[in-house]
Every structure is written in C-alpha cells, then in structure tokens.
C-alpha cells in the first residue's frame, strides 16, 4: 500500500479543470452575444452527448464506472471546447459525432485521462471538419444575418483588395473581423485569469502568439493586396486566443519541460499561420494543435536527453 504524505497543496486535478471551465465563461458569453442563443443549444447538446458517452462507456464493461466518468470534469471540458469550436446551428448528430469520436478515439482509446497523445476536443472537431465540411463551413454572418464567409475566409480569398480596403468592408470592425475581435479579446481575458491563477504557465500562449505575430509581420507586406493579413488581425481572428490559452495548454498533450513548451508553442503557431495562409482551410487551429501534439513526446524526449 502506498501512503501519500500528509501535506498537500490541496488543489486537485478536478479543481484545475473547474478553473479552466470558469475561465471559458467570458469568451463563451461573448460568442452567445454575437451569434445568439444557438451557442447555448450547441453547449447543451454537447454536454448531453457527454452523458450519453458516459452511459455507453459504463455499459461497455471496460472497468469504467458511470460515477467516475461523470465526475471527471476533463470530459465536460472537452465537450465545452467542442461546442465552442463548432459553428452555431449545428445538426444534433454532428455534435454527437464530434463528442463521441473526441472522447472515444481521442481519449479512451488511449486509456483515459493522462494517457492520450492528442487533444480530445480537437480530435472530435477535426473529424467532423473533415467528414461534414458542408455543415462546418456555415458560419452565420455577424453583419447582415445571413450565412456568409468569415473574415478569415474573406482574407484568404481576397482578390486584389489592399488590407485597408478590405478593412472598410462591413465584415471588418475596429481591430479585426466584426464580433470575432471581441470574442478573442474575451478569451484573452479568460486566459490571463488562468495565468494569474497559475493554472497554466505562460510559455505556450506567449510563444504561440509571438510566432503568429512574427510570421504575420514578415508577410504583412505593408497591407498590400498580396498581404497575408495584419498581425493584429491574425491574433484576433478565428479561434486564436482560445487555442493559445485553452487548447494548446492542455497539460496531457503538451510537453512537460519548460523549453519544450516554448518549442511546442512555436510549432503550433507556425502551423496555424501556415494553414491559414497556404492551406486549404481558412483557420487551422485544430490541425495545428494536433500536429504540435504529435511532436510533444519527441520534444520532451529531446529535452530530457539534453538535460541528462
């Protein structure tokens, strides 16, 4: 029998997950503000999908217990992230597929909490992104109320407009895309709260955002029609802040060493910018994080070799 020592700091893994869930609130509230109650529906569906997954896994006879599965708030966090990442007004079954594949393939196939290589939420998101592009590409426009291209898509398929001209179109606001800018600022605020609570360390967000800043600065091209977008626009578009503070910082799937975290952030940031600029998808958060996750064990390995 192993007996733990008598002094503990008292902060448990589930408390940490609770902090992360709480820190998502401002960003999520702003999403609801801009996109309407559809996001609340998204969240409700995703969370009930988790319950279904819990029941199914508990029935599967793999020594998983319903009570433990429900009490594991990292599952709830995964579902919340999926709900946030998907566009509003999703068919119910798309969200179910995302949650079930995220938790099933992304987490429990590897042996549950602490064992997975990839971020489960991003696994779920990537699977539905590839499988159901017709649903995933439909973002409601924040300007005129009909489905339209997101600011990142407008930038990607920009034909001959300088950034300044593009900025005057109704989809763009004060800092970046209308709505998106404030959603990102809200997630930034939640992320800073996590940093102050010392739930996450600064290395990954800072190195990831700095990489984006540097790369978009290099290809800014003074805002010409060939420009790949301004640094500020890249930082405040799509799921950038959500990814930097909430997704890439998942301790299970990121390196454990300090220098490794910085390298990880650089890789994730480079991948986001590469996919956004030269890839097929307008935003590359999910694939960037998954690719960086894939590198994490090697980064750690190299760090340990160097240290030893």
């Amino acid at each position: 029998m192993q007996i733990a020592n008598n002094i503990t700091q008292g902060e448990s893994t589930s408390t940490i997950m609770n902090y992360v869930l709480l820190a998502l609130v401002p960003g999520f509230a702003s999403q609801v503000y801009f996109f309407g109650n559809a996001y609340l529906v998204n969240l409700g569906i995703a969370l009930s999908a988790n319950l279904v997954v819990c029941v199914a896994f508990a029935q599967s006879g793999n020594n998983l217990h319903f009570k433990e599965l429900v009490a594991d708030n990292s599952n709830w966090l995964t579902c919340a992230l999926i709900a946030i990442a998907l566009p509003p007004d999703m068919p119910v079954w798309v969200i179910f597929v995302a949650v079930i594949s995220g938790l099933g393939l992304g987490k429990y196939a590897y042996g549950g909490i602490g064992q997975n290589i990839f971020n489960p939420a991003m696994v779920g998101y990537a699977i539905v992104l590839i499988s159901f592009p017709e649903h995933l590409a439909l973002w409601p426009a924040l300007v005129d109320g009909v489905t339209s291209a997101t600011p990142l898509e407008l930038l990607k398929y920009n034909s001959g407009l300088t950034l300044q001209e593009l900025g005057t179109t109704p989809s763009f606001g004060l800092l970046a895309g209308v709505g998106w800018e404030w959603i990102n600022v809200a997630y930034l605020a939640g992320g800073i709260a996590l940093l102050l609570l010392r739930v996450i360390s600064w290395h990954i967000p800072v190195s990831m955002l700095a990489t984006i800043l540097l790369l978009s600065g290099i290809w800014y091209d003074m805002g010409s029609s060939q420009s790949l977008g301004s640094p500020l626009m890249h930082l405040l578009s799509g799921g950038m802040m959500l990814a930097a503070f909430f997704i890439a910082t998942d301790p299970v799937t990121c390196p454990a060493t300090t220098r490794g975290k910085i390298v990880f952030g650089v890789i994730a940031g480079t991948m986001v910018f590469t996919i956004r600029s030269w890839g097929v998808y307008p935003d590359g958060i999910a694939f960037a994080v998954l690719l960086a996750n894939l590198c994490a064990p090697f980064i750690d390995h190299l760090q340990v070799e160097n240290a030893g």
Binding site: I3, A4, S12, S74, G112, I113, S201, P251, A256
Partner: peptide, 12 residues
C-alpha cells in the same frame, strides 16, 4: 483521509 489518487495529467 487520504485523497483519491487519479491519473497523472503531466501538469509539470
């Protein structure tokens, strides 16, 4: 009472 041990999440 000792806390229940759960899996390592590599929080470092």
């Amino acid at each position: 009472k000792a806390h229940k041990t759960v899996a390592c999440i590599r929080c470092a």
